[in-house]
Every structure is written in structure tokens, then in C-alpha cells.
Design a protein around this nucleic acid. Sequence first.
RNA 1: GCGCCUGUAGCUCAGGGGAUAGAGCGCCGGCCUCCGGAGCCGGGUGCACAGGUUCGAUUCCUGUCAGGCGCACCA
Length: 561
Amino acid sequence: MFDIVEEIRVGLAHLLVGALKAAGEKNMIKVDRVPDFTVEVPREKEHGDFATNLAMLLAKPARMAPRKIAEILVQTLPRDLAWVEKIEIAGPGFINFYLQRDWVHQVIPRIIEKSENYGRVKLGNGQRVQVEFVSANPTGLLHMGNARGAALGDSIASILDFAGYDVTREFYINDAGNQMEKFGLSLEARYLQLLGNEAQVPEDGYHGEDIIDSARGFLALEGDRYLAADPQERRSALVKYALAEKLGAIKKVLADFGVHYDVWFSEQTLHDSGEVQATLDYLKEKGYIYEKDQALWFKATSFGVEKDEVVVRANGIPTYFAADIAYHRNKFRRGFERVINIWGADHHGHVARMKGAVAALGYDPAALEVVIMQLVRLYKGGEIVRMSKRTGQFVTLEELLEEVGRDAARYFFVMRSPDSHLDFDLDLAKSESNDNPVYYIQYAHARICSIFRQFAEQGGELPQPSAVNFKLLQEEYELALARKLADFPGEVAAAAQNLAPQRIARYLHELAGLLHSFYNSHRVITSDRELTKARLLLVEATRITLKNGLGLLGLTAPERM
RNA sequence: GCGCCUGUAGCUCAGGGGAUAGAGCGCCGGCCUCCGGAGCCGGGUGCACAGGUUCGAUUCCUGUCAGGCGCACCA
């Protein structure tokens, strides 16, 4: 563990518990148990480096005034704490710890030693986690919702990896079921139209122009020889061709977006391998399946869900839900201890029954975690752009990448909570992309690199940390910067625990702000050689932290901009 | 009607049981011939409303109001 802040917190908590016990033995404070207190970093730095609410929590059980309790605790604490400068009792009964000013200095050599691993924490203990995200229908292009899911899922996966989990990124390909029928009918209509025939894309089919492109591609390859073919055969050939093409396009645009998967999982294979049937048989055996109106139903109500769900239609074809149950069984059988799905808000109704199904399969429903992200609303020219595939009027991820670029797009999607609706103003993103906060962060990184280039031109080399006196860093901005650097591992842990990449985005923005403030107040390279060395390593530690954090969000850390 | 998410500054949004609630955009005013001005510094009567729990609520709970999304033998 390379988290200084955490070490100090735990250390202070132990000391406080010790003091409470000692006071108890002397009958000065009488309580049955130690309350669930916190040691926190106060928001106001006037309140010290760390503060605890222990005394206030003891007030009631000990039947004493909190400030009185605080006094006793402080007196009982060991006196030989060299690293603590002073302890104060403040406000309603906070105990504030002021550490020796330079405690943060030790973080700098640690960061440089850890380098690209600075910020890694051992939260996951190698636990196997699967993150499934995007999983868009391979019948079209990726839209804004998919893009948000891609940025979120990939960042969550990266953060979990950094937090010590064994992460697998997976894309579930919905290449089976009803939509494949519609896909075939839509392609067929376009194909026939291209050949000058009368044909209509079904109303509930796919009306996007990309379907015409696919039909055109098929036509170029196969000519008109499917004109007279059996319609079933014709559609099958069209689907086979278009599916490969669509999937290829999806893979490519995701790669351009910086998203790479470990596993591409085909729904069809679940049907072909008999896993869907086997899963249904298993549930039936367990008594969770019954027949009604010629359909087979899953007893979701046994798991607190409002109503039961059809798993096999009256026509004998299993539903999407049946396949999804089989898919989740497959996931758990592969040994994942945590299964995380990133879903759009329009799928939230699916969460409860999916968890019910997981429970029915004999797995812990809590092992399935679903991050629901609210939908993206796209604005253009002050008006909402509909993203419906039906109208064929949606902006694709590809277009977004062309217009605002990968870094800006990814940062935009990840900077806010998944719970929050996202209004994406395309005009703003296009016309003012330079104002995007991502550049602010990247600029901090580039600035530091620029200093190093400057220094190298003068023949300088980065010093070894052991040859540097970090205590020379006493300016307010220097200390604030070092202090912020020390927070990084804790931020990674918090982001991982809450599946909240926006915490990293905020952290980086704040860190970059401190670097810019420091930069504008002090020069790194000066005639004072010792101070120059210390500052060079301070900004080097900052550069490493920025780069690691940007990496977690899938953003580049440019050396020049 | 039922369920999930959301109501924080002019706008878009972070944050979060504590001691003085933040950022970006926009607006106004400044920045030393010096490491990159995509930067810095200064300027803010804001936590939807009403109850409850608590030593302490903007944060947790309940209700009301408002917005979004679901509630298929679609996926």
C-alpha cells in the first residue's frame, strides 16, 4: 500500500481507540463499545490535516459534554508523537490534528519510485470481475448512448484493474432473435429497391441509411443473383454479410475510441450450444418455470419482482430474457465473482428480474451489479436531435469522433455521474472544443514536459530522489500540490468502490488547477540548484499522477499540444 | 396507476451526516520584458417544497411538486 493518507488515518484511529480504552480503565470515560467514528481530512485547512468526530459520538453513551471528552482523549494520547505538531479541540467537539508541515514531502519520492504504478491499490485482491458494456445491437452504428456506455464501462474497468481486480471487458453481441428477422427484412427491402424493385422497409424495421450502404455493399459483391432466390435464403445471406460488416465497423469505431475488449460474446452461440435450453431445464427442475397460455414463464415474483416473465413464447421461441439468463449463468460459471453490467436507463426495468434470475440460478444476486446510466440528449442548433434508429436521424460515435475528437468526447462522457442526464451540445462541443476541461488537464501535463525539455536543453538531468532535499518545498502552492498528490490512491479506491469514474475526472481537474497555480507563482528552473532539484521532482511526481489518472479515463497525456 | 433516476450559482454539472457548499461556461476587472496566456489572480444574497431521524441534514427517511425513463409472448 502506497497511500500515505490512509496510513496516517489508520494510525490516528488506532491511537484514538487506545486513548479511549486507557481513559476507560481510569474510569474517565465510560462506554460499552467504540463508536463507528471517522478520521477525515477537514475541508478547511484551518481545521488541521486530519480531524475526528469521536468525541461527539461518545457524548451520548458516555453522558458527557463532547468537548470534555475530547480533552480527556487528547490528554490520554501518547505524548511522543513526533509527526504531530499540535492537537486542538474545536467547534462542537472535533479533535483536529496538525501534522508536521513536511509530512507530505515523503509522497514525492514514493511516486517517482512507483511511477506508472502510482495510485494502484490492493482493494480487489485479484478478485475476478467482468465488466460488460455497450453490447449494442449489431444492426446499426453506435449512437451517443452507446458512446457514453463505452466511455463509462472502459473507465470503470480500468479503475477496477488499478484497484487490484482481475478485470475482463466483454461485449455481448445480440445476434439472435426477432431483431435479426427485422434486420433481414430491412436489408432485403433495400436490396430490392437498389435493383429497381418495389419494396418497403417494415415499419418496425431499420430505416437508417447505413442499411442502404450495407445492401449496396452486398450488391457489389453478389450482384443481382439473389433477386430470384428464395426470400429466406436471400435474407439469410444478407444478414450474414451485413452482420459481419456491422460488427467490424463497431469494433473499429470502438478501437478508435480507445476501447478494447477481451471477449466478444455471441448470443447465438448460447442457442447453438444448447445452453439456453439447459438453463431453462435447470430452472424448471428448481420449480421456477411454469406454463400459462402456451408460454413458459419464469417465476420472478418469487424474488420480489412485480410480475412473472415469459421465457419461451407460445410459438416455442425463447425470449431475449431466456438467452440473457443463460448468458449470466455462463458468466458465473466462468468464475467471475463480480459481474458488472453497464445499461442505459431504458433497460432499468430489466434489473430486478435479472437479479431474480441470478438468485434462481443459485448465485448471489448482489454479485450482479448494474450501473444504470441516464440517457444522452443531443442538442444541435438549440434543438434536441432524436437518436431513434427508426427515423434514421442519429449522430453516430464515428461522427462525434470526427467532430470533437476522442479525448474531448471521452472526458465529456465520464466527467459526470452515470445517474445524471447528459445534455450534449454538439455545436458547443464543436465550436469551443478548446474550452473543454480535458485540455486544461492535458495542458498541465504538456507544461511539465515543456519544463523538462527546457531543462534538458540546458544540459540538466532529473536528479535521484535520494539526492534531493524536499524540505525546501515550503511555499503554499508547493505543499498544496504535494498534498493533492498524496490523495490519488484514495481517489482510485473511492472511484473503484463507487464505480464512479467522474471522481477521477474531478480529481485530475483539481490537480491540474494546483499545478497551474503553482506554475504561475513560482519558477521551477532557477539559479538555486537545490530548490530547482526539489521542484523538478515535485512536478515530475505531478506529471506521473496526471498521466496515470488520464490513463484511467482512456485519455492521452500529450507532451506537446 | 406502479417502479427506477434526477431536482445544487444565469446555463451545464460536481460534491456530500459535520465546523465558511465547488468547477466549467457566460459576464466584469487585473497578470512582473522571465520554464508554453489552451494559463494565473479577483468578483457569487444557490442545495425544489414540507415534515422526520440526529448533538448536527444540503447530504439519510417519508410525503408533495417538477423533469426523464421504464412497466411486451421487443431487445
